[in-house]
Design a protein around this nucleic acid. Structure first.
Lengths: 216, 216
DNA sequence: TTATGTGAACGCATTCACAGCC
DNA sequence: GGCTGTGAATGCGTTCACATAA
């Protein structure tokens, strides 16, 4: 098989996808510093893993390197962007015009990576109509009628835990099939809807566990 | 072996710790609704896993249930809080008085879970001295001299990517051995320092991958 | 010689299945 | 009878080791 094969044949592990994202960020940095070529060994060191792991991760998607030489930084960057679906723009709508939404919108490289926040919704009558950078906060009741014409790809849940499931139901009913959930609860959705939950409480509790159980 | 054993004998998988945190959140909700007893099966359904998984997760730390009956919600809550190191208060200092720091400080249940933000630092002369809820933003240069007397347990990195490694070095030099990193870069620290990185870009790229590669 | 690509071996997390106790 | 606790079996991600190509 020669380079540029695409489309995973078997299911790809989450851990692999996370590492691919990491490799991409390193490649973009290397690009900036004018490096033309990298080896799996260098990428491994940057990512805290092994060269075999790097090569295996890439091998699921094709052959991108040259034996004896390594990988072209430019080409591998392009391949990874393609693999991760970053070759296109995703339209993101955010429900909940609070702190998390603001942090997201201003997150460095967010738009750059192809995630465009095109709409913001809230239930709070105080917030509806207010400006939010270039966007006007809309009434969440309008979400179902907006979703199709505006072509939202991803819905972000940035509301308190109690409201999260209701928002998820609304997103699903509006035809949105990919959800990023920042509320600290599990949400239930149909099998064909993709959900990822980022739960800061879990992260801190993991740190707490490590602290409490470390060898003194 | 009877109930209340403690201290993991073997290394515990990250995935296990995450699930324990999840179970705890369910238990707290059950507590609120006055439920006295749960089975591993109920916890499994809430967490999207299997009853065997729940029992196995708990078994690493002891025997907490009654055969034929299930688990006392109250007792298991207490045990999990203990296991996760949430029985005590952790003193947290945040470096970077930006959006993420604000989101953190106002995150529901953050203080409740035992994480107390006791200091905030920044390099920006504009921000130093300003009020940040009950706290005054301090000059990051003061961090090393504050760390020991104020007893910081955890340092939070909430600065841009470029500044993250420098802050990490400063935290380590100040004697802080547990770091929560919100900057979208890997940071290097000595082996005895615990680091957890929360990288929102990675989460979104994972969603993008799932979207791009899902069966149409 | 150097570094990739990959089948095979390995180790660990998950699942199974059932003995043990309420 | 119901549900826990756990050794054993399974499955899967990681690591190894080497054939392959520049």
């Amino acid at each position: 098989m020669n380079s540029q094969a695409r489309g995973p044949v078997k299911r790809i592990a989450d851990s692999t996808v996370r590492r691919l994202s990491l490799y991409l960020s390193f490649l973009e940095e290397l690009n900036g510093s004018g490096t033309a070529t990298v080896s799996s060994d260098v990428l491994a060191r940057l990512g805290g893993t092994t060269s075999a792991q790097v090569r295996k991760d890439l091998s699921f998607f094709g052959s991108f390197g040259k034996r004896g030489l390594g990988y072209s930084v430019l080409e591998l960057t392009a391949s990874l962007r393609d693999i991760l679906g970053l070759g296109r723009q995703w339209k993101v709508c955010v429900v909940g015009a609070g702190k998390i939404g603001v942090a997201l919108a201003r997150y460095p490289g967010f738009t750059y990576k192809g995630f465009n926040i095109v709409a913001v919704y809230d239930t709070d009558i105080q917030k509806i109509g207010s400006q939010w950078d270039a966007l006007t906060v809309r009434d969440v009741a309008r979400l179902p009628e907006d979703a199709i014409p505006e072509g939202f790809d991803i819905g972000v849940i940035a509301v308190p835990a109690e409201a999260a499931q209701g928002v998820a139901d609304l997103l699903v009913a509006s035809g949105i099939t990919a959800i990023m959930n920042f509320a600290p609860v599990q949400i239930a959705v149909p099998a064909d809807v993709i959900v990822r939950t980022v739960n800061m409480a879990l992260e801190f509790e993991g740190l707490s566990f490590a602290l409490a159980n470390r060898a003194k």
